[in-house]
Structures are given as C-alpha cells and as structure tokens.
Design a protein around this nucleic acid. Structure first.
Lengths: 223, 223
DNA sequence: TAGATTGTTAATCGATTAACAATC
DNA sequence: TAGATTGTTAATCGATTAACAATC
C-alpha cells in the first residue's frame, strides 16, 4: 500500500512543520516553488513528494491549500491513529522527550515511562507514573504500547530493547549509542545525538573543501 | 577533496560507535561481513564505505583492524581537529546536550552556552558560564565557535540563527521546529525530535503493510 | 487570453549491490 | 594449498531532476 519511501516520508514530516507555521501565520495557499524555497529543495521534488500522497494536494494553477495539504500528509503518514508511546530511561534526555515533544499533535500520546533508579521510579511525568523497567513487558501489553523512545545508559540498552520486544512494541527510537539487535518485525530509528554533531562537522568541512575547490578552478580556468 | 557523500558519512559515524564498543570489549579485528551484520546492511556497502576513506582499512584476508579502522574514520570525518561548539537555549534539551553528549571524544568541545532567561544566565554548564544571547556574535568570534546546537523556543530560532551567522558559526544542529534561512556558507542539520517519532511511526506502518502484502501474495500464489 | 501552476511521465544522476581478480 | 577476505570495477536499482501537456 503506502508507497511512500523513507526519504519522502522524512521530507513530508518536515514539510508538515513548515505548513503548520504558515497556517498559524495566516497563509492559506502556497505553490510547490514557495515550499521548495522554504525547505531548501526543488519545486520538482516537492511535487513528486506530494504526488506520492494517496490524496494529492489541491486544485491546479493556484498552488496548494496549506491546511488541506497538511491533512493529506498527516493521513499518509498515519497520524490519524492514536499510537501509545513509552519513554524508557527517564534521565535528563528521557524527561525532555516526555515533557517537551508534542506527541499529541501528531497522533501519538505518552502512555508509559520506565526507569530503574529508585529516586525516579514512582515520580510523575505528565500523565504517567514512572514504573520500574522490570515491568516493561507487562505494562507495554496492558497499555498497548506501539512505540518507545530509548534513552537509557548504553549498558542496559539491549536488555531493555529485548523487554520492549516482549511487550509487543513495534518501533524503537534509539538515542543510545548501541546498535540494537531486533527481530525483523520490529524497527529501530537511530538518533544518536553525537552522530548529529559528527555529521554536521563533516558537512562543514565539505563546504570548505567545495569553496576552496571552486576558488582553485576559478583560478585555473579563467572565463 | 573529501569525496565522502552524506549517506556514507552518516554510516561511518555509526560504524565508529560500533567499533568503539567492540574495541572496549577486546575485539581486535572484524570482517566487512561482521560489521554489516552488526550494523544491519551489506558487506558490499561496508567495503564501499571504507573504500571511500583516504586511508583504507587494513590488510587483506584477515578483515579490518578495529582500532585502525576507527582512526581512519575519525581522520576522514575531520575529528582530528578540535572544533568549538556552542549550545544556544539552555532549557532541558540544551542542558542535556551540554552535559551528556561526549563531544570531547569526537574532536569537539563545549566552548560557550547562551540563554535569555535571567535565572539561567550566569549559571555554569560543564566548563562554561551561560551568557546572555545578546552576546552571541561577540563571544562566538572570541571563542572561535564553529558549530552550534540550537535548542531555543521556535519563536527565537531564526533571530538566534542570524546572530550565530554573524558570530562566524559555520554549522547549526537545529532542534527547533523552524526551517532556518541561512546563507550558502553556513549549513544546518535538522534534528527535530518529533520528526523522529513521526518517521518511526511511518516505518512501523510500512512494516505492517509489507507483512499483510506478503500474506496476501502467499495466499494468491501458492508455491 | 496569457501566465502560472500542477500532475505525471521520461531522463539523469547517484547510491547500492554484485562480481571477481588479487592476496594472504 | 584452499578458503576467506579485501579492493575495486561494473551492473542495477532507486531517487532526483527535467520536461511538458493539461488546467484554470
């Protein structure tokens, strides 16, 4: 069914943030070119991405309706559902995830939280009480948890992941620095923050190289 | 120069985490197949990625030396440098970034932190004092900040980004939900956490669709 | 109408996978 | 040696870009 590839899904989720901002500012309509300029890609790619949505965008020579396009994206990306999410590892990062990520706005809700530390177990995070990680399989089944964010120390990560799988969790957003071994029926999305910094640093050096290469070729081949 | 494409750089940074873990566990050597199994891709892709490193891996029919390969990756990704990093927006997320991301292990160091809140300005984060965001341009120049993590509220994000650009910052790791407008000489890497959850949810539905499609075709075409 | 814009197909580009000779 | 493994080139696959008829 959903023939939305991963690169396209990534961009669609980011378009959605842009569309919401525009909508809040009162913009009713925009063209593929305008969205491309805001996002930093090409109008052609924007149209191709929208073309992959089951419902397309809107009308012909007036561009897209901001709100309708947003709804199309939500629908296509499965945000009509209400998926239950657990946060495992309620240290600084886990707490941040639980408190500051607006899951409710995107078809998800925080439905459980786990930790092993006695000072943290029993405290409250938003609408849930932090339970001990030994209860992961039971509570996940009870609450029908579908997705989990993993923000434990590296040492526990694989064991916790195994427990989540036992609990019937289908997707893990992995912030730990270990590569999880999971059955084929469960997907992980890696979000090691340090890798973000590394990739950024590489992009910056790349930019410098390009720039000096350009300068060089400008020198070598005078127009 | 650096003909390392972005997909390859992403994987290399993740290989590096795996290699460090193996090294700590005492593994001295591994083959492209072993790394592929751990990472979840193909041996061919691992070899292709390593082939793109200026220094290759190591020796012939014995696989790669774990530590040397790690060093090669570090070198290729520019971690020999010591890049100065600033965190802007020292709320929960910013504090987490400053305190828990092991920048020092990857050729970076926290060299400045900024916020606008009176209660936060003047406090200490690791080795730096949090300064008021109005001082961003000056302090960034002083401290030669190259990279910044942006974890402010959405409303301030663009203004802060402009200030960072004025301060000579070359790369921004953007955790805010706004798409930054930046000159061509500055790169951004978007890390909106909510998009991570959305993409994970999409992957999960995709998996379900595949599974039911498989079941269907199993039914339709008996072997 | 003329101009702008989409939807969609075709062409190009880049990234992944396959293949295999060389090596130990 | 035989078997395993790399380095590297070639083939395939998928994603991006270009093109353009249809539409208002």
């Amino acid at each position: 069914m959903s023939r939305i590839t991963n690169p396209t899904a990534k961009r669609l989720s980011e378009y959605l943030l842009i569309l919401e901002r525009l909508s809040a500012q009162g913009t009713r309509t925009l063209s593929s070119r305008e969205l491309a300029d805001l996002y930093g890609n090409t109008a052609s790619q924007v149209r191709q991405d929208i073309f992959s949505l089951p419902r397309g965008g809107e009308s012909d020579p007036y561009g897209y309706d901001v709100d309708k396009l947003g709804l199309s994206i939500r629908h296509a990306l499965g945000m009509d559902a209400l998926r239950s999410v657990a946060v495992v590892g309620c240290g600084r990062l886990g707490t941040t995830l639980a408190l500051h990520v607006p899951l409710e706005d995107y078809g998800m809700k925080l439905a459980a939280a786990f930790d092993v530390h006695p000072d943290i177990v029993g405290t409250r995070l938003k609408d849930v009480h932090v339970e001990h990680s030994v209860h992961i399989p039971r509570v996940c089944r009870q609450e029908q948890i579908e997705l989990a964010a993993l923000s434990t120390p590296a040492e526990e990560a694989q064991k916790i992941a195994d427990a989540l799988v036992h609990g019937g969790v289908k997707g893990i957003l992995n912030f730990t620095r270990v590569q999880l071994r999971l059955p084929d029926s469960v997907v992980a999305e890696n979000r090691q923050i340090v890798c973000g910094f590394i990739q950024l640093a590489h992009k910056v050096s790349d930019l410098n190289n390009d720039a000096s290469a350009d300068a060089l070729s400008d020198r070598d081949m005078p127009s």
